[in-house]
Design a protein around this nucleic acid. Structure first.
Lengths: 148, 148
DNA sequence: TTAAGTGCAAATATTTTGCTGTCAC
DNA sequence: GTGACAGCAAAATATTTGCACTTAA
């Protein structure tokens, strides 16, 4: 049973602070955008939204911050099957990994948490003697509404 | 038990012919590169190798051909956890999907075929009423040699 | 104080597109 | 013959980097 992922505002900020990483204005703006996003955002969307908080935020700061968060394992980077161009999408890493299912017809993204996925990762770590840091399962196809 | 994937030379060419898709010089060169590759190649590498067969091959033809093969479901597109930049890697789609494990320290890519992965996909199709066309599981972490 | 972070501008990397001539079928 | 494909050049998109100034701790 996946625990409900209750979200503490400023959690990302806290996690960075715990690791002794400096907090700045632009960084705060970007983090808040990522935290409050209710959909997957790409770098440009993050930039645009961050600028509504702090108009001076630069595109390169967005990329640098995304890099930082990736290295810290606090966000995941997704392709979403390149439904819109070749860019990447970002989302908070919360508890259990989930699978992304992208409908190639209507573009809807569904998410799915699966015990089998968790077992698969364990099996992989055991059988391949591989220490997993990130796991990304993306699926493309037709959703229930589009498959008919 | 996965069947041994015996490779017939010119198989890709044949598969395109079966579908009534035109064969041309540049296309033949690109297909042969993909077929004989013993590692994952990105668009630039494919271009370079294709040019050793047919020097006039253009970069855009490589992209157009990769697009064609993707649409036909004959190749898979991978990120390999962006070990080297943001480009994509391509590989023949042969029989069973496999998992790619990228070592974030040494860069080695290992592949793994798993029954559990197959069950997971079936479960997904059933539980989410989703018709899967492509499934991509990529894992990043430390391989057995690097984890110590 | 000072190492880390920032904006800015420019560079790089990757992919796509318009166009016109060519070729497979 | 004709529609699909090609090369070329240019554009569009996505990301990275060098540098000088600023700032958090």
């Amino acid at each position: 049973m996946p625990l409900p992922q209750t979200e503490i505002p400023g959690r990302l900020q806290m996690q960075l602070a715990e690791r002794g990483i400096r907090m700045t204005g632009p960084r705060r703006a970007i983090l808040s955008v990522i935290e409050t996003a209710n959909q997957h955002l790409d770098a440009s969307q993050i930039l645009r939204k961050a600028r509504t908080v702090d108009a001076s935020v630069d595109r390169s700061t967005v990329y640098r911050t995304l890099d930082l968060l990736k290295r810290q394992g606090l966000i995941d980077e997704l392709d979403l099957m390149h439904l819109n161009g070749e860019g990447h999408y970002y989302e908070r890493k919360l508890g259990r990994d989930h699978i992304h299912m992208a409908c190639l017809r209507c573009g809807k993204i569904a998410e799915f948490v699966s015990k089998t996925f968790e077992s698969l990762k364990k099996q992989l770590e055991r059988d391949c003697r591989f220490h997993i840091l990130v796991a990304r399962l993306e699926v493309g196809g037709y959703c229930s509404a589009c498959r008919r």
